[in-house]
Amino acid sequence: MNIFRLAGDMTHLASVLVLLLKIHTIKSCAGISLKTQELYALVFATRYLDIFTDFISLYNTTMKLIFLGSSFSIVWYIRNHKIVSRSYDKSQDTFRHYFLIIPCLLLALLVNEKFTFKEVMWAFSIYLEAVAILPQLVLLQRTRNIDNLTGQYVFLLGAYRALYILNWIYRYFTETHYVHWITWVSGLVQTLLYADFFYYYFESWKNNKKLQLPA
């Protein structure tokens, strides 16, 4: 474990807590894409298949349980909670996320570290996470006024993978044979997808203006 990875995990945890805070306290999911939340639940479900077979550390298992539990409960909240589901705007959240799942599955079947079910599922989860934010970014472009919690949620979610990139660089230089093209390329693509959001987020913070993404 290094400071970059710990900071990355804490930033990821913070993004989940901000989203839970928004949904649980103000009982609203305005501006949040259910599609992205469903994709993230799928990412964790396919990535943490080894949660009961390979014990790495208490930290690792605890964080996996937190991410699995929070992602599925957020999907449940938006879909089933009588008050929260009312603030979900289905007509705006129209990204066809199946168009993301199928190509990621095909790519995982072609490019993986070992052609076993667990490894293919793991590669699938890495590829899917790289594009899971797309429905949310599309929704943000359609949302006129993005509330602070939603903006912070997306910012933290993007920042965590950027910190992981620093972690991979650090591990490359400090550990022998630490080379993982699947996570490196996907993580870079994932972070680059946030580039324009980061730009407008920083601009709105610098000029103390409401966050607005151009349509």
Binding site: R5, D54, N60, M63, K64, E113, W122, Y164, N167, Y178
Partner: peptide, 10 residues
Amino acid sequence: PSSEGAKDEL
């Protein structure tokens, strides 16, 4: 094996 390295991350 190298794949162990990647799996210790979240």
